[in-house]
Each structure stands twice: as structure tokens, then as C-alpha cells.
Nucleic acid binder design. Structure first.
Length: 920
RNA sequence: GCUCGGAUGGUGGAAUAGGUAGACACGCGGGACUUAAAAUCCCGUGGGCAGAAAUGUCCGUACGGGUUCGAUUCCCGUUCCGAGUACCA
């Protein structure tokens, strides 16, 4: 009876759908477990073998948990709004909904072939009105909320309005764009428009005039995480800074909570580190410097308050609001010219030459509040307007950038901390003894910082301050294929659409590009306004909007009254295991946490963090193959001989190469130009060269999972992807080892049958060796799944089979538990075997085997003791060297006693320089 | 520049509360079965030296030190590779 994987897998794919094997419902009698994959954006290219890696791992885990008695929620859906479908639409006129639908169908086909246990009844698509209803709903909730730092949570904006009516801004401690100060009286006298303008300063979803990343190539604004090296992540177009009115989400209000929350999550340290850096908390002080001849003061932020006596100049960002006012007439022309120049330099250019020093003196002076010294004020683009206060006190002796600036403009450099050689470089380290610093002199830097901050506060010229690098998230996109904002305008004041009018559906347009005068595509819609005639917002929401709360929707996907019912939320709570790529560290995984915390604050969900444990699968790279053509000929030379000729390296399709050996016939048929190719072989074979590259069509190294499933079956694909190496590690796809895994499955199958293909298991009692093999494997596989070491558990199965194969074990008591054990990895084969073993129900309704320790008892063990003139046991025993004495010492050692359980050992073998072997 | 990871045979990778390094698999070599191929099975496989052989022995986990009876594992330094981030005051 051969293992006919094609037939078996086809049968069970159908059976699972018919029987609804993977449907889940709330079941209070069983503990829940929520396993989630990051849902895919269905691109036109379909899946390659790298995509399912994480899905296979989570699928194994989900099936394992189910076998362990958990009620497992394991859903799948599609992140369906997004740029590629829209770009394609602009080029071809094909509606993005159509392209998206086609791509989804293709994805589904491919996913189904791999045998995942998704509950497809819970599928969500972010572009469905029934889904984005709740994206819009959440947005309106944010619009209607503010953040209270005293209560440390979001509250309805009505509470803030009441506070304003009662006592203005007095005593408020809330998140805002800009500090405001007014009395209750002033508030009450404001017009509706004025009040709304004030509230925009506090709402968690708000509209503001800000510097944005404008990408002309895509015709839209981008969030910080969508830009890399000054280019758009999607498409690679240049990005420039532009001032525009945009919708934003006040994620900065949650900076500290998101930072603190990380400590309670089971995420990898590297991922947590990335988020910590992205939030970028830094502790320091805000200090106000008087400006000579002006009432106004210059506010700066510094983490090095201790170095205040070393300040020799001040620098403002070019966009700083004081630049215009404090520049003296004789410097006006030069400053304007400098501002003009920096404006022209793109973000990318600025980043490219960070070493170039540029700046301009404004003619104005600040006064050092501690020693009265007048300090020149400069403008320079090395100071960023978006961080801190957009102004700094420059201490060239202890900051490398200030040092470079001072050198360039010949400004004084005053050391205030001992150490380093200031003639060469600045001394930036936060340690050493203070000098030239009045009351700080003699202190260490670590004491001087708090001492100075205390002094600043005492004199009332500033205070301790915590700054975050995190910025508010820009939420508008000037695109078509996204969620419309449920917002309309009256006299340019934004109003929320009433909740009962949601969802606000995306209207049809005949052209998906921006309008001639640069308006978003929705401007083309004739009556894009409320029934009362008020115009709707023209931009749409960004990609991360739909993916921020999708894990909640899976809990209750068909509910049209709420995002998720209380019952469903309280049962499923949050995601126990989330598997996905690390590239979402600063995007989706930040926004989701923010979004969930917000819903938590308002009482809509019962957990503060959305994803308890998170595992990042590595990327699967492509392994390209090459042939070497002798230049100017049609002769191709094998790798080992290529140095003897003048050759050209040519990519060859990896699908016609096996174990780096070229299939010559297939090569001749591959492309017309190779029909009459000649070969110079090594040992009768053509050996190809290889390299690890990104998996891409142009390098002919894309391997399609469908093809692997066709040739080897889904179970082999699943096990092989796990066998490739540690899940979290990036590794090249390489089919070299796939035969080994496939061979294992065939051998496993054959264990159950005789020559005639009849099931041939006996009820005989297994030997102690067979029991031991079984339980050793159960133990190892269980531990490995719990630790996500899927690669070593595949090895454990192979070892198990090697051991059982030696004795040709065909005992039911051993083989039946192994079927359940392997079911998470090879579900199709396990189901088939389970059925043939006479079971009427799915193998996934069985229970995962438990380890029975009594079968694992060792009959001999090694007692780790070394020998070198004297012997020291781990417990700290020390003795002289005769073997007899060693034996006595080993036996009297409490640890040994524990091993032996009171019995006398049969033999103690002393291996000098090695170990002591104790045999029972 | 800063932060975080990593480096083990021809290849992918095992093994760390410090205890016989190289599990498992691929590849390669040899053999069995077969008219032949496929499939299947068995044996060998880190390197050097000695030996006809069994075997013995030395060296080996990027490099140099350290702690230890004992280090792939812990500590310090160096090199290389990867990832994140980048005028963040």
C-alpha cells in the first residue's frame, strides 16, 4: 500500500469542509485559546513558499492546542484596502474591488491546498462595508474622546467640555497638540466654530496643520513608518516635507502606556527593543532662556542640564516660529536666504550629507540664566522642528554635532566635564567630574543632572520633562481605495456623521487618479455630501486603519450592532499567540496596541493589550541557480570548470535544477535561445552555481507552494518548511532536503501496512524499549511545540521512526498515539490513518498523548564528575584521587542519592579526565 | 555612529541552570536487490597522525585572552556578517 498523498489530501480537504471540522463557537465549558496570523494583503503575484511559513507554524500550534483540549479560535481574512490595487486601477482602469476579489480567490485556493485549520466562517475583509463600519465607528469614538493624564485613560470629550465650562483650562492635565490657557468665562463666550477649533487641540482623532511626508509619486501623504531612507516603502518614490491640513491620531498620548505595557508582553526582546526605540523616551529638562531685548523667552529641551555652563550658542530649527521675530534687520537677508536653501533640500538630501555643516547667525542673543553670558542664536537644519521644542542649547564640548558646528563657525568650546581631548573631538560620555560649573563643580555627571534640574525648578525657569520621539499618526490619505471618513464639513468645521448612518460607503468613481488640481479622487464624485448637502471629507483612511482591530472582529464577525459583543469579547478576550513578520514592528503592531488601549479605556474591550505572545517568523529568501556561458558561444560550462574559460553568469530557473544539477533537457526547452545549447560537464553532470537572493520573478528563483504540494503533498511541504531551521531565523528556500522529509512520511505510512496493503497492527504488548521510544518522542515533541522548536520536533519523529523501524514495530499501542502526535504536522495523513484504525471521528477530536514518566526511567546514567588530581562535585565536595575514594564519594553525594533513589549502584566507572559513570 | 542579534563539518542545522560537540537530514562514497531504471534497504562520512585491522592518539564550535577539574555554552577584547535606527539635543 503506497502512500498516495494526492488522493488522501484531496479527500480530507473535502471532508473537512463538509464536516465543518474547524468551525468554532463559544464554549464556556472549555478554556479558550486564540491563535492568530497576520492577515495577508492579497497581491497579484499569489503566494510563494515564504508566505505560508508562519501560517504553518501557527496551524501546528492551533491543532496542538485543540488536541490538548482547548477551544481554539484560528481565523483568517484579508487586508484588502491598499495601494497596489489602486495603482493597478489607475494604470488599467480595472476597479480595485475586482482585482482584489480575484486575488483573494487565488489566495484562498493556495491556502486551502496547504491544509490549514482556519474557521472560514469567520473570514473578514477590510474593504467590506460591514467590516469598515467598525473602523469608521472607532474613528468617530476617537474623534469624540480626549486623554486625561490624571486618570490615565481616554474619556468622552463631553467631560472635557464640562470642565471647560466649569473652570476653563485650570488644573487640567490632558493630552494636547499645544498648551492652551483660558478661563471658563472665555470658553463660554466662544462661538461654536471657536469652540470646535479649541477642541481639535484635544480630540484623539483631530485635524491639524502639520508637516507631513508628502509623496508626489503616489500623490498622497504617508506615515513615518511608511517612509524609509526618504523614499516611500511602497513604490520607492521620493518623499518630501510639506505643511498640510491632515487628520491625525493622538497616539503620543499613549506613549508611556505603550512603553510600560511592553514589559508585560511575551514578545521577543528585539521586537520590544524596536518599539522602545520608536517611542524613544528621553528624560531631561525644559529650560527657558531669556532673549536679549525681547519679552519672549526661548524654550529648549535638553537631557544634559548639567552642561548648562558650557553653552556657547543656541540653535533654532529653520521652521521655528521665533526665527522671523528675533532675527535682527542686518541679518534678515542672510537668514532668509538660508531658510530658502534648506527648504529646497529634500529630506533625502538632508539625510545623505549629515556631515555637512550649515547654518546662519540671526544677530540675536540669548542670555544664560546661570551666569548672564550673552549667547549668539543661530539657525540650522541639524535641529529638527518636530522633536523637543525645535530649539537647543549648544554645548560643543560635550555634543559631537554642536562640536562640528562650533568648529565650522569658530565658536568657543568650554569644557564642563573632565575627560576626552577637545582638540580632536567632543567628550559626549555621561560620566566624569564637573568643572567650570559654579555650584556643580566637583560633582559627578550623574549627580549633577538632577541637581541642576532641581535648581532650574527652584528658580522657576523650567522643569523636569520627558520627551518622546513618537509622533502622532497622520491618518489621511489622498487616495480612493480606503475607508471614507465619516466626517462632513460646515463652514470648514468638521462634524461627525451620526453613528446610525454608518457605514459611509465608498462611492464609485470613473477615474481612480487624483484630479487635475491635485484633489483626492473622491473630489470627482458629483454628490459626495450628506443628504443635507454638506460636503464629506475627501481623503480616505490609511492601510493601518483596517488592520488595527481586525482580531476583535474575528470574535464576532457577523455582528451588525457592535464591533464585538460583550459575550464574545469576554470569552475570547485577546490573542494568545500572534505570528507574523517583524516588518510590522513600528506600524501595525504600534497602531493596534494604541487602538486596543483606546477601546479598553472606553470599556468596549476587556484586555488592555491585544497580543499576549508574539512570534516573528523569519523571511524565506530565494536560492538562485546559475549557468555559465562561454562568452560569444552557445556552450555552457559546469561550475567547477568555469575558471578555465571567459564566462558570463546567467540566472537559470530553479525549477529545472535539482540539488544544483541542471536538467539539461528541460534547460533546452526552457527558452528558445537555449535549444541548441552545448555543455561541458563535470563527471557527466552539469553543476550549477548558486547564490542567496531575494525571492523574485526576475531571478527565476520563485518557488510556488502549489508545485511543491503537487509533487510531494501538503504534509511534506508543512513538515519540510518546519524542518528548514528555527522559525524565527531567516533562511533560504532550498529543496535539497525535501526528499528526506517526504521519505520519512512514506516510511511512517508503511509502518501500518503489510505487503498486501492491509492494515497490519497487532495488539501485542510493546517492549520496554518501544514504550521508551514512544514516550521519549511524546516528551520531546510536546516540549518542542511549546517552545516553537518545530525543526527539532521533526527530527524527533525521524529518530522515533528509526528506532521503531529497527525492530519492525507494528504494535497498535505504540503506533496509534504516534498518529495523534504527528497530526498537527501532517494532518491529512493522520486523519486517513486514524480512520483506517477504525475511528469514526476526526483525529482532532482525540486527545494529545501524555508522557508517562515510568517508561522513561534510565537504567544507567552518567554522573558528571571530572578527575584531575582531585575531584569536585557540583555540590562542592572535594576529595583525593583514588578510584575507590571517588566511588565512595560519588555514592555518598546527596545528588547521587537522588539519582539512585536509595538503591545501591551496580558499578561505578571512573574515567580519568572525563566523567564518572554510575550504572544501576 | 548608536542599539540588538549572530558566527559549529561539503550543506541546512542539533546540543547551553558549564559535563562524551556534530543529533536529525541533505550531499558524497561503498554495497544489497533488479535485465535495467525508479523505489527500497544496509554500511561509511569533521580534520591530522600511527596501524593490515580492531583501534589508538592529537587538533577542532570565527580569532586572542580569562574564570573553571572541565567552556560551543560564562566574562573581557578583536574580526566579520545580519537586522533596526539615524542629525532625537
Amino acid at each position: 500500500m503506497e502512500y498516495n498523498f494526492a488522493e488522501i489530501e484531496e479527500k480530507w480537504r473535502k471532508r473537512w469542509i463538509e464536516r465543518k471540522t474547524y468551525r468554532v463557537n463559544i464554549d464556556p465549558k472549555r478554556p479558550k485559546f486564540y491563535v492568530l496570523d497576520m492577515f495577508p494583503y492579497p497581491s497579484g503575484a499569489g503566494l510563494h513558499v515564504g508566505h505560508p511559513l508562519g501560517y504553518i507554524a501557527s496551524d501546528i500550534y492551533a491543532r496542538y492546542k485543540r488536541l490538548k483540549g482547548f477551544n481554539v479560535l484560528h481565523p483568517m481574512g484579508y487586508d484588502a484596502f491598499g495601494l497596489p490595487a489602486e495603482q493597478y486601477a489607475i494604470q488599467t482602469g480595472q476597479h480595485p474591488a475586482v482585482t482584489t476579489e480575484n486575488n483573494i480567490r487565488r489566495y484562498r485556493e493556495q491556502l486551502d491546498k496547504i491544509g490549514f485549520c482556519f474557521d472560514w466562517d469567520r473570514e473578514v475583509r477590510t474593504c467590506d462595508p460591514g467590516y469598515y463600519h467598525w473602523t469608521q465607528w472607532a474613528f468617530l469614538k476617537m474623534f469624540g474622546s480626549y486623554y486625561d493624564f490624571d486618570k490615565n485613560r481616554a474619556r468622552p470629550i463631553e467631560e472635557l467640555i464640562k470642565a471647560f465650562e466649569r473652570s476653563g483650562t485650570e488644573g487640567l492635565h490632558v493630552a494636547c497638540t499645544k498648551e492652551m490657557s483660558f478661563s471658563a468665562d472665555e470658553w463660554n463666550k466662544m462661538s461654536e466654530e471657536q469652540k470646535e477649533a479649541v477642541l481639535q487641540n484635544y480630540r484623539l482623532a483631530f485635524r491639524a496643520d502639520t508637516m507631513v511626508n508628502w509623496c508626489a509619486g503616489l500623490g498622497t501623504v504617508l506615515a513615518n513608518d511608511e517612509v524609509k531612507d526618504g523614499l516611500s516603502v511602497r513604490g520607492g518614490f521620493p518623499v518630501e516635507q510639506k505643511r498640510m491640513k491632515q487628520w491625525l491620531l493622538r497616539v503620543t498620548a499613549y506613549a508611556q502606556r505603550m512603553l510600560d505595557g511592553l514589559n508585560r508582553l511575551e514578545w521577543s526582546d528585539s521586537l520590544k527593543e524596536i518599539q522602545r526605540n520608536w517611542i524613544g523616551r528621553s528624560e531631561g529638562a525644559q529650560v527657558f532662556f531669556p532673549i536679549k531685548g525681547m519679552e519672549e523667552k526661548l524654550e529648549i529641551f535638553t537631557t544634559r542640564a548639567d552642561t548648562i555652563f558650557g553653552v556657547t550658542f543656541m540653535v533654532l530649527a529653520p521652521e521655528h516660529e521665533l526665527v522671523g521675530r528675533l532675527t535682527t534687520p542686518e541679518y534678515k537677508e542672510a537668514v532668509d536666504k538660508y531658510l530658502e536653501e534648506t527648504k529646497k533640500r529634500s529630506e533625502r538630501e538632508r539625510m545623505a550629507d549629515t556631515k555637512r555643516v550649515s547654518g546662519q547667525f540671526t544677530g540675536a542673543y540669548a542670555i544664560n540664566p546661570f551666569n548672564g553670558v550673552e549667547i549668539p542664536i543661530y539657525v540650522s537644519d541639524y535641529v529638527l522642528s518636530g522633536y523637543g521644542t525645535g530649539a537647543i542649547m549648544a554645548v560643543p564640548a560635550h555634543d559631537s554635532r554642536d562640536y562640528a558646528f562650533a568648529r565650522h563657525f569658530n565658536l568657543p568650546i568650554i569644557p564642563v566635564v573632565e575627560g576626552g581631548d577637545l582638540s580632536v573631538e567632543s567628550y559626549d560620555a555621561k560620566s566624569g567630574k564637573m568643572i567650570n560649573s559654579d555650584f556643580l563643580t566637583g560633582m559627578d555627571v550623574k549627580e549633577a543632572i538632577p541637581a541642576m534640574i532641581a535648581e532650574v525648578e527652584k528658580r522657576g525657569i523650567g522643569s523636569r520633562r520627558i520627551n518622546y520621539r513618537l509622533r502622532d499618526a497622520i491618518f489621511s490619505r489622498q487616495r480612493y481605495w480606503g475607508e471614507p471618513f465619516p466626517i462632513y464639513y460646515k463652514n470648514d468645521v468638521a462634524y461627525p456623521l451620526p453613528m446610525d448612518r454608518l457605514p459611509l460607503e465608498l462611492p464609485e468613481v470613473e477615474n481612480f487618479g487624483p484630479t487635475a488640481d491635485g484633489e483626492p479622487p473622491l473630489a470627482r464624485v458629483k454628490h459626495w455630501c450628506t443628504p443635507e448637502g454638506y460636503p464629506y471629507e475627501l481623503s480616505t483612511m490609511p492601510g493601518f486603519a483596517g488592520s488595527s482591530a481586525y482580531y476583535l472582529r474575528y470574535m464576532d464577525p457577523h455582528n451588525d450592532k457592535e464591533l464585538v459583543s460583550k459575550e464574545a469579547d469576554e470569552y475570547w478576550r485577546n490573542v494568545d499567540l500572534y505570528v507574523g513578520g517583524i516588518e510590522h514592528a513600528t506600524g501595525h503592531l504600534m497602531y493596534s496596541r494604541f487602538w486596543n488601549m483606546f477601546l479598553y479605556d472606553l470599556g468596549y474591550v476587556c484586555e488592555e493589550e491585544p497580543f499576549k505572545k508574539l512570534v516573528n517568523q523569519g523571511m524565506i529568501q530565494g536560492r538562485s541557480n546559475f549557468v555559465y556561458r562561454i562568452k560569444g558561444t552557445k556552450t555552457y560550462v559546469s561550475t567547477g570548470l568555469k575558471d578555465q574559460y571567459d564566462t558570463q553568469e546567467i540566472h537559470v530557473d530553479v525549477n529545472i535544477v535539482k540539488n544544483d544539477i541542471l536538467d539539461i533537457d528541460a534547460f533546452r526547452k526552457w527558452m528558445p535561445e537555449y535549444v541548441d545549447a552545448e555543455f561541458i560537464l563535470e563527471d557527466g553532470k552539469y553543476v550549477c552555481g548558486w547564490a542567496i537572493e531575494k525571492m523574485s520573478k526576475s531571478m527565476y528563483n520563485v518557488v510556488n507552494p502549489d508545485q511543491i504540494v503537487r509533487d510531494y503533498g501538503a504534509d511534506t511541504l508543512r513538515m519540510y518548511e518546519m524542518f528548514l531551521g528555527p522559525l524565527e531565523q531567516s533562511k533560504p528556500w532550498d529543496t535539497n532536503g525535501i526528499d528526506g522529509v517526504h521519505k520519512f512520511l512514506r516510511r511512517f505510512w508503511r509502518m501500518f501496512f503489510d505487503r498486501n496493503g492491509e492494515l497490519a497492527l497487532t495488539e501485542e504488548e510493546p517492549t520496554s524499549g518501544e514504550w521508551k521510544t514512544l514516550h521519549k518522542t511524546i516528551k520531546k515533541v510536546t516540549e518542542d511545540i511549546e517552545n516553537f522548536s518545530f525543526n527539532t520536533s521533526v527530527s524527533a519523529f525521524m529518530i522515533c521512526l528509526n528506532e521503531l523501524g529497527n525492530t519492525k514495530c507494528n504494535k497498535r499501542a505504540i503506533l496509534e498515539p504516534l498518529v495523534v502526535l504527528i497530526a498537527p504536522y501532517a494532518p491529512h495523513m493522520a486523519e486517513e490513518l486514524w480512520e483506517r484504525l477504525g475511528h469514526k471521528t476526526s483525529v482532532f477530536d482525540a486527545r494529545f498523548p501524555e508522557v508517562d514518566e515510568k517508561h522513561l526511567v534510565e537504567d544507567s546514567f552518567e554522573y558528571p564528575v571530572s578527575f584531575n588530581g582531585k575531584v569536585r562535585f557540583k555540590k562542592g565536595l572535594s576529595l583525593s584521587l583514588s578510584p575507590k575514594e571517588i566511588e565512595a564519594a560519588v555514592l555518598s553525594d546527596p545528588a547521587c542519592e537522588k539519582y539512585l533513589g536509595g538503591k545501591a549502584p551496580r558499578k561505578v566507572i571512573v574515567v580519568p579526565g572525563k566523567i564518572v559513570n554510575v550504572v544501576c
